[in-house]
Design a protein around this nucleic acid. Structure first.
Lengths: 247, 247
DNA sequence: TTTTGTGGTTGACGTGGATCAACGAGGCCC
DNA sequence: GGGCCTCGTTGATCCACGTCAACCACAAAA
């Protein structure tokens, strides 16, 4: 671990994250363009296929490499002592996974494929060298580091004050944004995770997630058919985010 | 900012924080002994007095120094765009304040004195040099850095699932622990913050905090008289923490 | 074909905590 | 002293979400 904590973080991005305080800011997509992925792939050349429901890595594994997702998607979770599973994030095609161990030698989460997937393996030892060659990679790091900062007690608590529909709206907008980053339509996509996984991620029960989806549908904000989502009104969803408690 | 992210963090402490997931772990006290403070004071010599309700620093201020609290106590908060104030932490005599900007050049919180206080000013430029001389200081850093790691999405969400009484119990135990670290009785102390500030910190309303105190009193766990707290049963409070949702 | 299992939707109900409101105690200033 | 302000306590009410349960769609297996 030779990284310095000297990553320049703009005050603007920090303030945006701190004051807006919605999930969207907390799950900054750190996606790479197809070109960047290909360039990485070319430089490294080591690929790995992971079948649906199989682990890419486990909590406690030594932190030796990061992975650029070439195809498929993953979830990261922690297993709690009482047996519950807490989903900590979703990673999509074109994004980088494995950075959760950025400050320690060991992974702190399990990473599990949501569908058959393929990653490009970037050994940690090669990272610094690669950072110089691949401009995008350095950029990803900045984003991830700045995400670290946002993880503040205050933000935690504000999350707690978000209603179910606010959380789901933030989640959908975040997903939409991340699909867009990959050149897909922002309006229509397939979720690869179950309602239960979304719920675990958002701190809600699966029924609550389902109901929120139904309400969005009633209100004409999205068209939902199981995992297939079509967003009908982005402004409508955004409006939900700024719904302030009376205070 | 020359710090490296190479701070050695024990897997044990990480696991403890991740799996136990209670507020106590999230607000690790990073207190120093009186000797350590005195030693620092001697080495640096710059003191500053802050009157009650006055700022030690504000969000956006350049991050130039950290402060060892010689007397008094502080809260740190962020002001949200809608005018609400979110308390992000409390700092007591013997603890270090100013590290919230550890990864950036600017403070991200306001620091406000809860009572007339005095701090020992440690310019950031002197920090590295001092770290070599004052063993305790390095130790504080490790703790603070490891606290950073705990700020994980998963932990956030778990916090959201804690009941009001769990949160308050965690808070009281944490306070007790921090008082003990300073040589005071763990069982009896004065809180310097209002119910509203506690509530903001814990993500609860002041009435809920008050009611939780009352219930603790009824149940013989603590004796409460306004800000004066006497803890009658530490095991009783701890039992509340492990209260699991049915799941 | 039936059976079994997984994932999604919807309804009924209970409850924790937010909200609104009243009231009491102590500190401060005129 | 009386008025004002802040802080704490307590009661009544409301509502969002968790919980329990029924039911459906779909897929894989027998």
């Amino acid at each position: 671990m030779q990284m310095k904590a000297t990553v320049p973080v703009s005050m603007a991005s920090l303030k945006a994250a701190c004051s807006q305080c919605n999930l969207q800011e907390l799950c900054l997509p750190f996606g790479m363009s197809e070109n960047e992925i290909d360039r990485l792939d070319e430089l490294v050349g080591a690929r790995r296929k992971i079948k649906r429901q199989h682990h890419l890595y486990r909590a406690g594994d030594l932190f030796e490499a990061i992975y650029a997702i070439r195809a498929g998607s993953f979830k990261t979770d922690v297993l709690l002592e009482d047996g519950r599973e807490q989903v900590t994030g979703f990673q999509m095609t074109g994004e980088i996974i494995g950075l959760d161990g950025i400050s320690t030698e060991f992974h702190t989460c399990n990473a599990i494929a949501l569908e058959d997937s393929e990653v490009c393996v970037i050994p940690y030892a090669k990272l610094e060298e690669l950072s110089r060659e691949v401009e995008g990679l350095q950029h990803q790091f900045h984003k991830v580091m700045s995400r670290e900062i946002v993880r503040d007690h205050g933000v935690m608590m504000l999350l707690g004050s978000m209603r179910a529909e606010e959380r789901l709206a933030a989640f959908l907008l975040n997903m939409s944004q991340r699909f867009t980053a990959r050149g897909f339509s922002a309006a229509e996509f397939h979720l690869r995770m179950t309602r239960e996984e979304i719920g675990s991620y958002l701190g809600l029960k699966l029924e609550t997630v389902s109901r929120a989806f139904s309400r969005f549908q009633e209100d004409g904000l999205v068209a939902v058919q199981q995992k297939h989502i079509r967003i009908l009104s982005i402004p409508g969803l955004k409006k939900l985010l700024h719904h302030q408690p009376a205070g």
